[in-house]
């Protein structure tokens, strides 16, 4: 049995547009190298067996599970993680929408969800609810019941298409109680304390 220190790999990897030289035991996964060698702990893990989607990152624009690729395979690949989503200090519309709708509760599945959603919207800016659900179906979340995530992605998609839309009132306040005067007007509500992105 080879010792854990017997084989190591050194290579240049490109993460979020930044190239860096890293050295690591050859059997280490991209997940491990991102978190441990690159100090990019935004990428999380929930099973390390490809079963939960938490560790999703983009490789050449496509979501993959970083727990099931070796970092040694990453030469010449373009890796994107949650840390690369912001534009300077501005949140990506997906980040802003998920933050504003409380779609990141514990926030642990959020990086993987964001990356899978970004890959989808980059390719299909018009993705509808069904497509969003299909594209995200490999990402488990235990907090939200998924609705706020889907609503957030829809909202972000609309804004990325240049549509100036507010989040619907029932997304923010719930459905009007039957027989009651109805919810407050959402336009006056200022969902977002600080509207980034």
């Amino acid at each position: 049995m080879p010792n854990a220190l017997s084989a190591f790999t050194s290579l240049l990897i490109e993460v979020n547009g930044e190239r860096r030289a890293v050295s690591f035991p050859t059997h280490h996964t991209l997940l491990e190298v991102l978190r441990e060698e690159c100090a990019l702990t935004g990428t999380k893990h929930g099973c390390e067996l490809g079963e939960c989607g938490t560790c999703a990152v983009l490789v050449d624009g496509r979501p993959v599970l970083s727990c099931l690729v070796l970092a040694a395979e990453m030469e010449g690949k373009r890796i994107e993680t949650v840390e690369g989503l912001t534009d300077g200090n501005e949140l990506h519309p997906l980040q802003a929408a998920l933050a504003d709708l409380g779609a990141a509760q514990c926030g642990y599945c959020t990086p993987g969800i964001l990356m899978a959603a970004k890959a989808l919207l980059d390719e299909e800016p018009e993705a509808d609810r069904k497509r969003i659900e299909q594209a995200l179906a490999g990402n488990l979340c235990r907090c939200t019941g998924y609705h706020k995530i889907v609503q957030g992605i829809e909202w972000a998609a609309a804004r990325m298409r240049g549509e100036d839309v507010a989040a619907p009132a029932d997304v923010l306040y719930g459905a009007p109680e039957p027989g009651s005067p109805g919810p407050p007007d959402s336009s006056s509500s200022e969902t977002t304390e600080r509207q980034d992105g």
Binding site: R35, T41, L85, A99, D100, A104, G107, Y173, R194
Partner: peptide
């Protein structure tokens, strides 16, 4: 009574929130 952005919202969507395994 208002749907404000949660105070840890930004950290959670940027990967800045530190969970126990993120500490070193």
């Amino acid at each position: 009574g208002k749907p404000f952005r949660r105070v840890d919202g930004r950290a959670k969507v940027t990967g800045q929130t530190l969970f126990a395994d993120d500490l070193s």
